[in-house]
């Protein structure tokens, strides 16, 4: 490949952008990978140095994406503080360069990154302190997905006409979930903690409590509902299609509760689930 091949120059510039280190380190990495030096690629002779010109792109690449992550994870930014958030966000951007034109996908691996990079040798209090950011990130990611995926707007989402409460449980009745529904099982009650933290940043860290959340949307407004383990299992089962009875059976198997009990819970819970945009009946 010739030295001024445009594809080679693009590969060189890409390496400069995504490599770790300061500009000198990036240039060393790019030179090693592509056999090109800055002076060979970038024209000189006017105004700012070639290094300065290149750094507008190299520094801007990271800062621009960190700003996007802050926008994508505002509650986490508030919890960690901007400076600490930026440390992790920069590390994330360097570790996981964006691989999609969809900017909204930038932060999709951030919760997992935070979980993987947390200190492992902490005591109980430290465990919560280090584990909570990843849990907050999971919640915020679920919210962002629920806000943009297709929902039930414009469609009837209420009770099936002529169907009484017992009718919900008939073989003919099936459940449809909106694409915007996100089901998360968190180690902490993150929504309650964030509400308290927003009112008082000195709010104590929460105790561990497994929390099943259903995050969805109604009339373009976000809904968040904590659900019992049987309801979580029921919704998970509904993702596979089938009748209400089949989902009840799956929930019973997953939670060890009797199907008759789940049917009773369901009759009371379905109107709330419909109101929160978690499902509709057909």
């Amino acid at each position: 490949m010739k030295r001024d091949d445009p594809a080679r120059i693009q590969a060189w510039l890409k390496t400069v952008l995504v490599s770790r280190g300061d500009l000198a380190g990036k240039l060393t990495t790019a030179a090693s990978a592509h056999g090109l030096a800055l002076a060979e690629v970038v024209a000189g002779g006017y105004g700012a140095s070639a290094e300065r010109r290149l750094d507008v792109y190299a520094a801007g690449y990271v800062l621009r994406l960190v700003a996007c992550l802050q926008e994508q994870y505002p509650a986490l930014t508030a919890f960690m503080g901007e400076a600490m958030f930026a440390v992790f966000a920069k590390a994330y951007v360097v570790t996981h360069p964006p691989d999609s034109w969809r900017l909204e996908h930038l932060g999709r691996r951030f919760p997992e990154f935070l979980r993987e990079t947390r200190p492992r040798q902490a005591d109980a209090a430290g465990e919560t302190f280090y584990a909570l950011p990843a849990e907050i990130a999971r919640f915020e990611w679920a919210k962002s997905q629920a806000l943009t995926a297709p929902g039930f707007e414009g469609a009837a989402v209420g009770v099936v006409p002529g169907l009484g409460p017992l009718g919900y449980l008939g073989e003919a009745c099936s459940v449809e979930l909106p694409d915007c529904l996100r089901l998360e099982t968190l180690r902490y009650d993150v929504p309650t903690f964030l509400a308290a933290f927003g009112a008082d940043p000195k709010t104590p860290l929460p105790a561990a409590r497994q929390t099943h959340l259903a995050v969805s949307r109604v009339d373009y407004r976000l809904t968040v509902l904590e659900v019992a383990d049987w309801a979580h299992a029921f919704l998970v089962a509904c993702r596979g299609g089938g009748s209400v009875q089949e989902a009840v059976a799956a929930s019973s198997q997953a939670t060890g509760q009797k199907a008759s009990a789940i049917q009773a819970y369901l009759m009371l819970w379905l109107p709330t689930a419909i109101q929160f945009g978690l499902l509709r009946l057909r």
């Binding site: 445009p6 693009q10 952008l17 995504v18 801007g60 621009r64 964006p98």
Partner: peptide
């Protein structure tokens, strides 16, 4: 401009050499 190569998207509007080939 170009925005990425080899599967990486920079989310920036990057310049390219301007010559007969490009």
């Amino acid at each position: 401009c170009w925005t990425g190569i080899h599967g990486v998207n920079s989310h920036d509007l990057l310049p390219l050499p301007l010559n007969e080939e490009t």
